[in-house]
Write a protein that binds this DNA or RNA. Structure first.
Length: 511
RNA sequence: GGUCCGUUCGUCUAGGGGUUAGGACACCAGAUUUUCAUUCUGGUAACACGGGUUCGAUUCCCGUACGGACUACCA
């Protein structure tokens, strides 16, 4: 097997879609598995779609996800530059070569003329309106114009593009590592523009030239490129690079969770989950897109989730560290069908990764929230809270969101529980409990528990009957972690004042 | 419209000519628990359809349907 060199080649036109992150991940996994090289190339040949900040966004997103770049933009390397806009002269050279070899030609058609051609074909009922072997002879190009005319146009700086002269009726075979053999007849392919009138190459020329020059061994990209892959094969052939042609692997698409179709920001917004790695505000439209990072997803969890969208190891193991992923990953085990993006599973992965952390690591998350809330807390207390909350959080912010009551006495009480279960037994039980707890010097989970039993004996009320109202009195909410531990954490002062407050403020509803 | 790609529980998927079609998420139920959650146990639930080939097809082949991608001087 030749040296593995793969590339992730996004264009800086906005936020990096989560599907792009998965593509990058698979590239990265393959590179790491074979001790190869992961290259980041920026495909910015469309100047009209360039969005400032997008490249930085891509870099930051990949770094956050732990996808390391060995060579490329921001990193440098033997094949620099890695930004296509900076490689203009290189592409021109190969485009010229193709023209000289008779594999490509100049075309001078204006936009209006192209439109007219398509319109004409349409009204004729033709099934395709492509600029191809069937139409090129009726257009304005170096194939139909005299050599003198062409020279004159070129000299007078008439805008032109260079088009590939796609042969007629030739079977083009392409072996895709995921889909197997794909055959396309060349008559189906149009005379793609290789060089645009602004002197920039199109994606097709640029990616083939760069992949060759950068010695790419595997092209792993989204399925949307499959239809143009035969064209790329043709280009390799025409350029004389057939032997060095990389292997192709076209990844199945990420689809929306319900209904059909490609996963879009619209759908994600509607369902309330992100589809971009990190927050992004479009500098032009000011449109905001939320990110997985800011929404509390751990990068490892997201990576694990993403890896399983379209790939699986063939075992029942689901939790994989990046190292394990690298080890287990093979292109052969990538599926063919599109995968629906179900955020539930991502949440589950997030929970799993959160739970695997130590109380100490977890308390960092809590401290983050406490800092913005301006609340002081000892490390010991934070760790205890995290230990108690660990099994019930999905996101790091949940430690605060679900555990506010550790720091703030309730002012409101769960309506449902109060109206259903708050009764004379509750007030009686809590009254006695309050008196007893005041006698303790320190409240621990243990002694508050035995006090519970003691109070039960004194009052003759089973503790089970009042536990829910007890919790509401203490925390305001109907559910939460172990109550005794909660009492230990908030301490005697808080426990007594909260019980008193509840007793004074919750009205008994006579049923 | 044309070309290409795809189709196993609701979702991610394993499997593969003869299986009780397996796992995970979600969902439901029971158990545990001071509540909720956790945990444990159990359950509902799938081979798109029609033709072949075959003793036998969900698996192979061909169609159909459905879905998707592409069809720009965008990537």
């Amino acid at each position: 097997m030749r040296e593995v060199r793969v590339r992730f080649a996004p264009s800086p036109t906005g936020a990096l879609h989560i599907g792009g992150v998965r593509t990058a991940l698979y590239n990265y996994l393959l590179a790491r598995k074979h001790g190869g090289t992961m290259i980041l190339r920026i495909e910015d040949t469309d100047q009209t779609r360039f969005v400032p900040g997008a490249e930085e966004y891509i870099l930051e997103s990949l770094a956050w996800a732990g996808i390391e770049i060995d060579e490329g933009v921001s990193k440098g390397g033997p094949h620099a530059p890695y930004r296509q806009s900076e490689r203009k002269v290189i592409y021109k050279q190969y485009a010229d070569q193709l023209v000289n070899d008779g594999k490509a030609y100049y075309a001078f058609d204006t936009e209006q003329e192209l439109d007219a051609m398509r319109e004409r074909l349409k009204t004729q009922g033709s099934s395709d309106q492509q600029y191809s072997s069937g139409t090129r002879n009726s257009m304005k190009n170096s194939l139909t114009l005299s050599a003198i005319d062409v020279k004159e146009k070129l000299d007078s700086k008439t805008p032109f593009v260079i088009r590939l002269k796609v042969p007629v009726n030739e079977e083009i075979k392409l072996v895709d590592l995921i889909r197997g053999e794909v055959n396309v007849n060349s008559s189906q392919i149009d005379d793609k523009v290789l060089m645009k009138s602004d002197g920039m190459p199109t994606y097709h020329l640029a990616n083939v030239v760069d992949d060759y020059l950068m010695k790419i061994s595997h092209v792993i990209r989204g399925e949307e490129w499959l239809p143009s892959a035969p064209l790329h094969v043709l280009l390799y052939k025409f350029l004389g690079w057939e032997k060095e042609m990389p292997q192709f692997a076209h990844l199945p698409l990420l689809l929306k969770a319900d209904g059909n179709g490609k996963l879009s920001k619209r759908d994600a917004d509607k369902a309330g989950f992100p589809i971009f790695p990190i927050d992004w505000t479009d500098p032009k439209t000011k449109e905001f897109s939320k990110g997985f990072r800011e929404n509390g997803y751990l990068p490892q969890a997201l990576v694990n989730f993403l890896a399983f969208l379209g790939w699986n190891p063939g075992t029942t193991q689901e939790i994989f560290s990046v190292k394990e992923l690298i080890n287990a990953f093979t292109l052969e085990r990538i599926g063919k069908a599109g995968a629906k993006f179900d955020i539930h599973k991502a949440q589950w992965f997030n929970q799993q990764y959160l739970r695997a952390k130590t109380d100490e690591e977890l308390s960092e998350y809590l401290f983050n929230s406490l800092k913005t809330e301006n609340i002081d807390c000892s490390v010991e207390k934070a760790k205890k809270i995290c230990a108690a909350m660990k099994e019930r959080v999905t996101y790091p912010s949940d430690f605060w969101e679900l555990g506010k009551f550790f720091f703030r006495a309730p002012t409101q009480f769960d309506e449902q529980v109060v109206s259903k279960k708050w009764n004379d037994d509750t007030t009686k039980f809590l009254g006695v409990y309050l008196d007893e707890i005041k006698k303790l010097s320190l409240v621990t989970a243990e002694n508050s528990k035995s006090l519970l039993e003691k109070t039960s004996l004194i009052t003759g009320i089973a503790s089970g009957k009042i536990m829910q109202t007890f919790r509401v009195a203490l925390t305001g909410g109907a559910s939460g972690p172990d109550l005794m531990m909660t009492m230990e954490i908030i301490g005697k002062e808080e426990v007594t004042s909260r019980i008193s407050f509840a007793l004074d403020n919750i009205k008994v509803r006579v049923s």
